[in-house]
């Protein structure tokens, strides 16, 4: 792998251009920008339905400066399977001579939920592609509904906090672990507050032959109820509080990318976001849920550490 040099990146042709219509302060375009910064190959991109897909391709304009395809919500991985298979056969037949890389992406709705089967199928079949999940922990394109990536206690529009409910009452699914269970050559979890971690991991994913999966934490200011300027700060807090560990699984071996010393309390991460404000409402505090969230983070962290190479 060549070193990542910012000045080189600044001069490079963009994969995603300006003029996209994502909300101000959205983490998704940042994550996707960062993801492509370190890639030096021609790429073809396939996207699931979602904010990024809709807002980057408002007809007749497209903010993609590489070939891009969106078919539907649940099938980005199946779609790219076809593109990649076509590439392999056309290259074998001598109709294409250059080396092209394939990247599919989706939000957590299109990846954890409706697209999980298609993703699992594509990972199992071993297509040479990278799947990036830009994970804002819910369905943002339709207005902040809960997904299986939404964490415990979050106030989402289909798991609202009310007089008899404290937001989402279930834990988030651990999709990175599910991806790793496919025994694919590369799986990683990362966060956009550390662009070099994102770039390095996506670059490795793309350059690794076979399927790779990268899960990037990308805040949505509207759902998380944070200021539009807070994306990097809140991500940093997510990692420092062990809410979102950053790590890699290379050929089945776990490597921790960063260990916060000392870790921040989950409560600090939760208090920084409006989606958890009901947990701290005067007179109706739900410190039990906060404690559950802390225990989950601690246990997940210990499980992860036990797997990691030391």
């Amino acid at each position: 792998m060549s070193a990542l040099n910012i000045k080189e990146m600044i001069g490079k042709k963009r994969t995603l251009t300006q003029g996209h219509r994502m909300c101000p302060g959205c983490g998704a375009p940042t994550a996707i920008r960062q993801a492509f910064m370190g890639i030096d190959y021609p790429v073809v991109v396939v996207s699931a339905t979602g904010c990024m897909e809709v807002s980057t391709t408002v007809y007749p304009y497209s903010a993609w400066n590489v070939p891009f395809m969106h078919i539907a919500f649940e099938n980005a991985a199946a779609g790219i399977s076809g593109v990649e298979a076509a590439y392999r056969v056309l290259r074998k037949k001598g109709k294409i001579d250059k080396e092209i890389k394939f990247v599919a992406f989706g939000g957590d709705g299109g990846t954890y939920d409706i697209g999980l089967q298609s993703l699992s199928g594509a990972l199992e079949r071993g297509h040479d592609f990278t799947y990036i999940c830009y994970n804002n922990q819910g369905y943002m394109n339709t207005g902040a509904q809960r997904s299986s990536a939404t964490p415990l206690g979050a106030n989402a529009t289909t798991s609202p906090a009310g007089s008899r409910s404290s937001g989402k009452l279930q834990r988030a699914k651990d999709l990175t672990e599910i991806a790793a269970a496919h025994n694919i050559p590369y799986v990683a979890q990362t966060s956009l507050h550390n662009p070099f971690d994102v770039m390095k991991k996506v670059k490795r994913a793309v350059e690794t032959p076979g399927p790779a999966f990268v899960n990037i934490l990308t805040p949505c200011p509207l759902f998380w109820k944070i200021d539009t300027s807070e994306q990097a700060n809140i991500c940093k807090l997510a990692v420092n509080s062990k809410f979102w560990p950053v790590y890699e699984v290379i050929d089945g071996k776990y490597y921790l990318s960063y260990e916060p010393k000392p870790p921040a309390a989950i409560e600090e991460f939760l208090r920084a976001q409006g989606r958890y404000s009901h947990l701290f409402k005067k007179g109706a505090e739900r410190f039990d849920l906060v404690a559950d969230a802390q225990r989950d983070a601690d246990e997940n962290w210990e499980k992860l550490l036990a797997k990691c190479m030391r």
Partner: peptide, 24 residues
């Protein structure tokens, strides 16, 4: 040919669309 043994009909037609749009 490349034969892709997909995991559902939905993925079958999705992969077909991807491959066809790719130029195959």
């Amino acid at each position: 040919s490349e034969y892709i043994a997909v995991e559902s009909e939905h993925s079958a037609i999705s992969a077909c669309v991807g491959a066809s749009v790719a130029g195959a």
